[in-house]
């Protein structure tokens, strides 16, 4: 899994590539915590390159979702591939976490 971050307007865009599984999920949590500690309050996670997510990945996503919520921040996920979308649906995460088709739509929603 690879993580790249950059600012777009007032939002932080996190581009996730590869697999978020039991081996890599903690790296996502660690990296996002760093960004939250630096003051990120609007976060878009772009999943266009995310090939696979498991329950370990979901656990990491939920951890960060709660932590940012407690800070009064907002976040959205976008561009989910089929496997990732299905795991979000089956787990009920799709009804908790805002999901948008495109990064532009996610950025607009958080603006």
């Amino acid at each position: 899994m690879e993580l790249n971050t950059h600012a777009e307007g007032s939002a932080l865009v996190v581009v996730v590539t590869g697999r978020m599984d039991a081996v890599t999920a903690q790296a996502f949590v660690d990296r996002l915590r760093e960004e939250l500690a630096r003051g990120a309050l609007r976060v878009v996670v772009d999943c266009a390159g995310l090939e696979y997510v498991s329950s370990a990945g979901l656990r990491g996503i939920l951890t960060i979702y709660k932590e940012l919520n407690h800070k009064g921040g907002t976040q959205a996920y976008c561009a989910l591939r089929e496997q990732v979308r299905e795991v979000f649906d089956v787990s009920g995460f799709a009804s908790i976490i805002p999901i948008h088709d495109t990064r532009e739509a996610a950025l607009t929603a958080l603006a």
């Binding site: 498991s54 329950s55 979901l58 656990r59 939920l62 709660k66 089956v90 787990s91 009804s95 908790i96």
Partner: peptide, 20 residues
Amino acid sequence: TSLPLEERSAGGLGLLLIRR
């Protein structure tokens, strides 16, 4: 899987994903 955010944990999701 219908609980509100603060009551959700990721426990048990692995088993659910296996079954589905």
